[in-house]
Design a protein around this nucleic acid. Structure first.
Lengths: 150, 150
DNA sequence: CCACTATTACCCACTTGCCCCCACTTTTTA
DNA sequence: TAAAAAGTGGGGGCAAGTGGGTAATAGTGG
């Protein structure tokens, strides 16, 4: 699926040009239909429309007596926005989403499996430096990736 | 079903214009008939009339020896108000409901599955900022959406 | 029972912002 | 170096948003 990252610039209208290497796949397999939403870590998520449908269904079906669950549903579904590539392979990021992720001109587009993540470029660099040397487990909580040998 | 949010303004008459992308669906599948009611989190809920009927039935049938259950029934059913879109796709929000949710001019309309939520805009933004970075489970309570992989 | 007022419903007109498309610039590759 | 592909910018048409005027209805008081 999707992997790798690029540094991209939003133009004055808030449009983001997807790197060419992804465009073919998105056009053919997903008819150019994508969904943008937010992530609790402060970035945006960009899913192919069908993949997103699955996730949304799971979200909505979850019983929500718990306030945190409701907030999760509100945010993820409530911010979900269908977008289509224009003739030049660009998508328009609505102001509401831009604000949420603090996107300005410089943006990092990162392919992670079924989705892309869209980060404010500075924030993204912070993650890298914060990550380095920080993978030792804290307070004995077992890490889900403990068994992975790199 | 419904997804995505918009920033909307109530006009001087307390009318709320539904975004065009929803109007067709509401007109065709639900004949423009909607029901407004309140939510314990402080927002209003906007259901298609048939969907609301189901919920109301469940509410009314629930045995109510418990005070919280009775209050739930009182509030949800007691505030429920049928509304119809006017020729411009707007609904009128009764003062009683406006007051409950503290709605002034700026309002957030958020599609979440079978319903919309209507929030005072500031309150809604507050939810977003409170949510970010808040997904780490506290005090070991397991989160119902824990198994969801985004 | 009627008159008066306040609220709601319906309709029309104006304004705004968005979306589609085209054109130009820059980079890549043959 | 030329030609093609990718990146970038912007303008104009039209749908959607917004505001208000007027008619209809309901609610209130005499």
């Amino acid at each position: 699926m999707f992997r790798g990252g690029s540094s991209v610039k939003l133009d004055a209208k808030g449009r983001l040009a997807l790197p060419t290497r992804y465009r073919g796949l998105i056009t053919e397999r997903f008819d150019g239909r994508l969904v943008l939403t937010v992530h609790v870590d402060g970035c945006l998520l960009l899913y192919p429309q069908p993949e997103w449908e699955d996730i949304e269904l799971q979200l909505i079906r979850t019983p929500n007596q718990d306030r945190r669950t409701r907030d999760m549903q509100r945010m993820l579904v409530g911010y979900a926005t269908e977008v289509e590539m224009d003739g030049n392979g660009r998508i328009l990021i609505a102001p509401r989403l831009r604000d949420f992720a603090g996107l300005e001109k410089g943006v990092s587009l990162v392919g992670v499996g079924k989705k892309f993540e869209i980060w404010n470029e500075e924030t993204w660099e912070h993650i890298g430096s914060g990550w380095m040397g920080a993978h030792e487990e804290k307070d004995g909580a077992p890490h889900p990736l403990e068994t992975l040998t790199l």
